[in-house]
C-alpha cells in the first residue's frame, strides 16, 4: 500500500542500540547516517539505497544508518520533505536520479535538486522493455506492429510521468510514428511492487523499468525482455538493444546521492569522501556487476556540472515530446 509517508524504516547497528546509548550524537563524523529514499520499497532508488546501506555497514564506513522511504510522483514528494526535515543535517544522504530530473520539470515542482549538495553520481542503468510471459508478443518487431495497429490498446506500466520510464515509452512510440497523446501509459509512481505485480498478473501489455528491477523476474521466465535501451550490447546482459533491432532509441538512467541543503563546505566534503571510499570497496564493485549497473562515479563539482547539463538536456527532450513547455 503506497501512501506518502507510511514507509518508514530505520537501520542502526545493534552495537549502537546496546552499547552506544551514552555517546554524544556527533562523536565520530559518520556514526550514524540517514539514507532518504524518495521511492517505494522494491523500486530502483530503494534497491540503490539499500545496497549503499549494506556496503557502508559491511565495510565499517558507518556505524549505523536509518532508511526512510517516501515514494510517489517520481520522487517529488520525498524531495520537499527531505528539504524541510533534513536542512543542514550533515549525516543525511538523499538518493536521486534522472527520473527525478524529468519529474520535477514535468510536474513544475516548486523545489528542485539544485537546493541539495551534489555528493556523487554513482551508477548508470539502461532501461528495459518487457512483456508478461503470457503475452503473445515475442519480439520488438511484433510489439512495434501492435503499437502501430492500435496504440491505445497497448498499456504500459512504468514510473512517474516525465521520468525516464515515461520518456522511454514516448521515444518508442515516436519511433513507431504513433501520436503521443493517445498513449495508455499507466503510472505506478514510486516504482516497486505494484508495477511488478501488474506485469506478473498480465494486467498490462508492457512494462518499462531499469534492468536491475526486472532482472530476477526475467531470469525466472516471468517476464520477457524485448529490448534494452543501450547503444550497444551490454556484457553480462543477454538482451538485444533497440538499435540493433532497427529502432533508433537509446536512453540511460543515472542514480546518485545528494547531501542536505545548507551544508558547510567541510560537511559536503566529508560526504563526498564517504562516497569515494564506498565505491572503492570490493563489495560495491561486486554489487555493480551482479545488478548490471555501470560504474558512473562522478564526485562533487563534476557531478554538479553534469547535473546542470542533464537538466537542460532532459528539458529539451521533454519539450520535444510535448511533456513540458
Amino acid at each position: 500500500m503506497l501512501d506518502r509517508r507510511s514507509f518508514l524504516a530505520a537501520t542502526a547497528g545493534l552495537a549502537a542500540a546496546t552499547a552506544g546509548l551514552g555517546l554524544p550524537a556527533a562523536a565520530k563524523p559518520f556514526g550514524s547516517v540517514s539514507l532518504f529514499i524518495p521511492g517505494a520499497p522494491g523500486g530502483g532508488w530503494d534497491i540503490t539505497g539499500r545496497v549503499i546501506d549494506e556496503v557502508l555497514k559491511k565495510n565499517g564506513l558507518v556505524r549505523s544508518s536509518r532508511i526512510t522511504n517516501v515514494g510517489g510522483a517520481g520522487g517529488t514528494i520525498g524531495l520537499p520533505q527531505f528539504i524541510n526535515q533534513y536542512d543542514g543535517d550533515p549525516n543525511a544522504l538523499f538518493i536521486a536520479g534522472a527520473i527525478m530530473v524529468g519529474a520535477i520539470i514535468t510536474n513544475k515542482t516548486p523545489v528542485n535538486l539544485g537546493l541539495l549538495k551534489p555528493v556523487a553520481r554513482l551508477t548508470g542503468e539502461y532501461q528495459v522493455l518487457v512483456v508478461p510471459a503470457a503475452s503473445p508478443v515475442k519480439t520488438l518487431a511484433e510489439f512495434m506492429a501492435l503499437l502501430k495497429q492500435d496504440p491505445k490498446a497497448v498499456t504500459w506500466a512504468g514510473g512517474a510521468p516525465g521520468g525516464t520510464d515515461h520518456i522511454f515509452a514516448c521515444l518508442i512510440a515516436k519511433a513507431a510514428g504513433v501520436p503521443l497523446s493517445g498513449l495508455s501509459y499507466v503510472a505506478f509512481t514510486g516504482g516497486g511492487g505494484e508495477a511488478m505485480a501488474s506485469l506478473l498478473g498480465n494486467q498490462v501489455s508492457a512494462g518499462i523499468s531499469g534492468y536491475g528491477e526486472f532482472a530476477e523476474q526475467i531470469k525466472a521466465g516471468n517476464l520477457r525482455a524485448l529490448a534494452i535501451s543501450a547503444p550497444s550490447r551490454v556484457a553480462s546482459i543477454e538482451i538485444p538493444t533497440l538499435v540493433e533491432q532497427g529502432v533508433d532509441v537509446t536512453i540511460s538512467n543515472w542514480r546518485g546521492v545528494f547531501g542536505a541543503p545548507n551544508l558547510r563546505e567541510a560537511e559536503t566534503a566529508a560526504l563526498i569522501e564517504l562516497a569515494t571510499a564506498m565505491v572503492q570497496t570490493q563489495d560495491w564493485k561486486q554489487q555493480l556487476a551482479t545488478r548490471g549497473w555501470s560504474d558512473q562515479f562522478l564526485p562533487g563539482a563534476a557531478f554538479a556540472a553534469y547535473l546542470e547539463q542533464d537538466v537542460a538536456a532532459t528539458r529539451s527532450v521533454l519539450a520535444d515530446l510535448g511533456l513540458a513547455k
Binding site: 503506497l2 501512501d3 506518502r4 509517508r5 507510511s6 517516501v70 510517489g72 510522483a73 517520481g74 517529488t76 514528494i77 520525498g78 520537499p80 520533505q81 528539504i83 524541510n84 519529474a103 514535468t106 510536474n107 515542482t109 516548486p110 523545489v111 512517474a160 510521468p161 516525465g162 503510472a187 509512481t189 514510486g190
Partner: peptide
C-alpha cells in the same frame, strides 16, 4: 493534500513546502 501521486501536481498545498509531501495519517 500534497503532491498528486499520479500527475505530480500539488493540490491544496497553498504554496507551503510543509504540505507538499501531504499529511501523515499517523
Amino acid at each position: 493534500v500534497g503532491v498528486d501521486l499520479q500527475s505530480g501536481q500539488p493540490r491544496f498545498t497553498f504554496g507551503s513546502l510543509d504540505l507538499l509531501d501531504g499529511i501523515d495519517v499517523i
